[in-house]
Nucleic acid binder design. Structure first.
Lengths: 200, 200
DNA sequence: TACAAAACGGACCAGCGGTCCGTATCGTTG
DNA sequence: CAACGATACGGACCGCTGGTCCGTTTTGTA
């Protein structure tokens, strides 16, 4: 019996903090302006509890992010087409990119917070590595695709970066559909290294 | 006489601060760990002086960045081929991207600091807008190029983002030449032709 | 019911970016 | 050269932050 099961109040408080943080982040313009003390107060919990449960600020944000991301990952790993593994690479890649883009659109504040929290590079987070590895391996399987798949995967993912999405969708008021279409077009151009079919 | 010319000690101190900041940033792993007080001390100046000269932290970093960037801009606006405006778009675009990449490689810490300083999105900085506008207009002039030039310009620039460059060149130890070649290949694919021949 | 083990919470801390204002320097004018 | 506004200096000072500590309370088991 190496692990003890966590106590009831601990899990309740953890959930309360998660919920409070989620709400506060969603309500504020920038994540930076929500302090840990505020989150603790909103959750009806002491600061010590908050830090014991999540370690530090990034720990909290990461936990929230992972929770939101989990269903998407599930769809990618076990789900049906076009996200699931039964899809051929040439159509799965755009589907994945679209899913990532939609996720960022739906979780703007959170993604922004995670990708630009102080010092830590988003490229060292393990969820990035998962996306990158998957995408890279798919690109390798596409016959016509020239160039280095590793780098191409990085760039395609960079097209969905939270602050770029925020700039286009938020500051420049691009509608969701337009962004998705542009990303799809761009991905198509990259995938078939020759000139792509005329845009619709 | 709307402007007064600045006092001599003011300009001397400004230069001292700039030099000290430059050195400290270059010496530290992450810009975040260099405090304003340290910079002031290293420059042999009071904190007040520092803040009066640059406004705030981002002001200082931006001033440093602009100073480094100026020669590159000069080469792009008035210089000879392949960066200058006499170059045809199809070969000028890769040259510009390469110049940006090299600049980021040569100024890793600084670029990293500017692109991820706290809250401010790098997409609202005016130097970004200059690059983006130039690149977008060039893309529009390329006949075979399909898709939205505005978005494509964003993505191509995203391929040179400081933290991606840092991840690849620093953490993954990619040699400089490899990165440049990969970016060139990728850009060529986007521009609408197959893989290019040159690989110097 | 007794009693460890685990979790709580908020006073507390060091350090940050940024401000303020009494003092020192500049450079201009007679 | 003297004198005197204007300008810049510098570091004590402020509010606030993320993060820690430890006496107190809750939990669950024997």
């Amino acid at each position: 019996m190496p692990d003890r099961s966590p106590r009831k109040d601990a899990v309740r408080n953890r959930a309360a903090v998660l919920a409070a943080a989620d709400e506060l982040f969603a309500a504020s313009d920038s994540t930076e302006e929500v302090s840990m003390a505020e989150i603790a107060a909103a959750a009806g919990v002491g600061k010590g509890t908050l830090f014991r449960a999540f370690g530090d600020r990034v720990g909290l944000i990461r936990a929230l992010y992972q929770a939101r991301l989990e269903p998407v990952w599930h769809a990618v790993e076990d789900g049906p087409a076009p996200l699931g593994s039964s899809t051929p690479p040439l159509s799965r890649v755009p589907a994945l990119l679209d899913a990532v883009l939609c996720f960022k659109l739906d979780n703007r504040r959170l993604a922004l917070a995670l990708e630009s929290t102080g010092n830590a590079s988003p490229y060292e987070a393990e969820h990035y590595e998962r996306w990158h590895t998957l995408l890279r391996d798919l690109l390798r399987q596409i016959p016509g695709h020239a160039g280095d798949s590793d780098f191409a995967a990085h760039v395609l993912l960079a097209a969905t970066r939270a602050d770029l999405v925020e700039h286009l969708a938020g500051h420049e008021q691009f509608p969701r559909a337009k962004l998705r279409a542009q990303l799809a077009t761009f991905a198509a151009a990259v995938l078939g290294s020759g000139p792509p079919a005329p845009a619709a």
